[in-house]
Nucleic acid binder design. Structure first.
Lengths: 373, 373
DNA sequence: TAATTCCGGTCAAAGGTCCG
DNA sequence: TCGGACCTTTGACCGGAATT
């Protein structure tokens, strides 16, 4: 660059603007002047000095010098569209939702740790950091399975109660969501917990006991639910390398089902679902950008959502399994399980759910813990 | 060169870019917009002039005009750096898939018209153009339901056979997909066909007979399958204003289920599914752009995919319904229905499916037509 | 081989933003 | 309100790969 000096005011130039080597100041001044069709009048002799320090003293002389230095008014274009705001006031409202969901998940983990007696050290919730030690864990008994489901149901209710979008619903709709989502949410949780297992064909129950596929079929898993969880959910999750944020978002999307049975007011549920969907999609887009890929090509959000049909079908079969197990007297079905998993229509006794819903967070959990003692 | 003018802003064009005759400015603008996933909002009435001089005044309207002029986001490639691999997927590769799926759908419609005897004039397949006339259609009998399911199964096999991605699979995996997808695909088809009905709480069977919700429960629909189809699938589809392209894409995604039971080689199935998923997502992005919205905000593809969990659950209950109906001797279950819907394990007699799969297109259909006479 | 088409990328010079 | 330091977007131009 030969000319480094503004031809108008001798300030340091930032290149050629509108036909003259000039500084940003003279550039901006010229643009504003032409745009707004300002007509300046010199109060002196039309021969004021235009230098870095004095350039703002007389606009008429400054503009005249701009033109003499070669600035062309026809280089000024029309006004353009507004550009994005500079201040980073963005991504507050949407991150909130994810934070909220992660917080709800963390809460449940803390509650869970207070009722699990089977293992001294808890499995880390966010997978991938610590490997499971097969030796440390015991294999699940039929009783473990029943207890695990029960535990998960209690935690599920507490989880739901901690979500503002849930608490604003009517009690009837809250009950509908809990009944409609229980089985699927449990399956999703079990699957996500099992991602980090190093042993194959095994899932990890809520109380950290392990349940191998073959073992399950022996104790009453007629529908091969465990096998299907592994093949259709855990393995795809592993291949996708699903993370905690994606898990909590998917869980909430699954839960806020606007077409669940017995729902009365679909709209708030649908809104909650779509808010979670947006968060998930945004998260996937970010992930794709980080990996220098294109979400439209990668379709990560779509791949995650496509876990849900299998999940739904498996959950339905889990319910069948439990129904059959109860029929054969293999498992002890308490009233919470009856109401949430088996969907038995008991309009005369909706007490359990009501009690859980109205009690303060954690109180029912404490009661559980005492029962376990 | 006939067209020398940019179809977006009337400036001088530099050839065809991304599918539209355009200038370098609009070319660059479109590429940047798609790459960075910009979401522009028109500050006026979404009808700004896009001419050479004003094109920078409103980016939302400029981008919209790009899409309307025929620019395709799928023509935007990724980083050029990668070992100079330039595919010939200029504009064809992915559009082909949608065309293929639409063609398969059209074929099935033609086949369908050759076996339907119940109505003289066929219902138009692409909804929304012609309104159904309730008077013209007759209400379904139990026999109609059985026949309709059977018909749909035959058409389903022909549909699958016409897909190249299907025909390249092994016979074992073809059978697995057919068995695993039959019920869901039938439900999806019924639901899509019922969108254009003006009467509420009614679905439209494959042979153009109508089946009202209350009527269905009387003839053996214990699980309220019809009611659930309306509430959970048809109504959401209506609200989304789902179109034919989205329907065929969703159908193929549902069908190419890589974790279906008894599948041996998941990979080609997974590839087919993801190709369809990409097409769906791309289509939704285009739709969002045309409507001046943002797919990441709109989540149309996600909303469509979220129809599938319900669909899966309903299909499972349809199977139950049929099982019960057979148990009570209410319906005549032929071997095709037995094999595809009821999933009866009959390793000794996989003949029916084998025959259908190996016979040339349409021959089994003709046989069907003759039987119906 | 040379011409053509349509991708991708670059960067000067337009634009806009927003504190002081 | 205006100035101007600082940041974003535009689009003319160029290189490369595939096609003709």
């Amino acid at each position: 660059m030969v000319e480094e000096v503004c031809q108008i005011c001798n300030d340091k130039s930032t290149g050629k603007h509108y036909g003259a080597i000039s500084c940003d100041g003279c550039k901006g001044f010229f643009r504003r002047s032409i745009r707004k069709r300002y007509h300046y009048v010199c109060r002196f002799e039309k021969s004021c000095d235009v230098t870095r320090n004095k350039r703002n003293a007389c606009r008429a002389c400054r503009l005249q010098k701009c033109v003499r230095a070669g600035m062309k008014s026809n280089a000024i274009q029309n006004e353009r569209d507004a550009i994005g705001k500079r201040k980073k006031t963005n991504d507050a409202g949407r991150e909130d939702l994810i934070d909220q969901l992660v917080a709800a998940e963390t809460l449940c983990q803390q509650l869970r740790s207070s009722v699990i007696k089977n293992t001294s050290s808890l499995a880390p919730y966010d997978c991938g950091k610590v490997k499971w030690n097969y030796e440390d864990a015991k294999a699940a008994t039929l009783d473990d399975i029943g207890k695990s489901i029960h535990q998960q149901l209690v935690l599920f209710i507490e989880w739901a109660k901690s979500l503002p979008q849930f608490s604003f619903l009517t009690t009837v709709d809250q009950a509908a969501l809990l009944k409609g989502g229980a089985a699927s949410i449990i399956v999703l949780g079990v699957a996500y917990r099992s991602i980090c297992l190093t042993v194959n064909n095994t899932i990890c129950l809520a109380n950290d006991t392990l349940l191998p596929k073959e073992h399950a079929t022996q104790v009453g898993d007629i529908n091969c639910v465990v096998g299907r969880i592994i093949d259709e959910i855990v393995n795809p999750m592993r291949r996708l390398n699903m993370d905690l944020i994606e898990y909590v978002a998917l869980k909430a999307i699954l839960f806020f089902n606007p077409v669940v049975r017995e729902i009365q007011d679909q709209e708030p549920v649908e809104n909650a679902r779509f808010a979670c969907l947006r968060s998930l999609q945004r998260r996937c887009t970010e992930k794709a950008l980080e990996a220098m890929e294109d979400e439209t090509t990668d379709c990560r959000s779509g791949k995650l959502l496509l876990l849900l049909p299998s999940l739904q079908a498996i959950a339905q079969q889990l319910v069948e399994d439990v129904q059959l197990a109860r029929l054969f007297g293999l498992v002890n079905v308490d009233s919470l399980m009856e109401e949430l998993i088996l969907n038995d229509l008991k309009p005369s006794d909706p007490q359990i759910l009501q009690t859980s819903l109205s009690s303060p967070v954690n109180s029912s959990m404490k009661a559980e813990a005492e029962i376990e003692e």
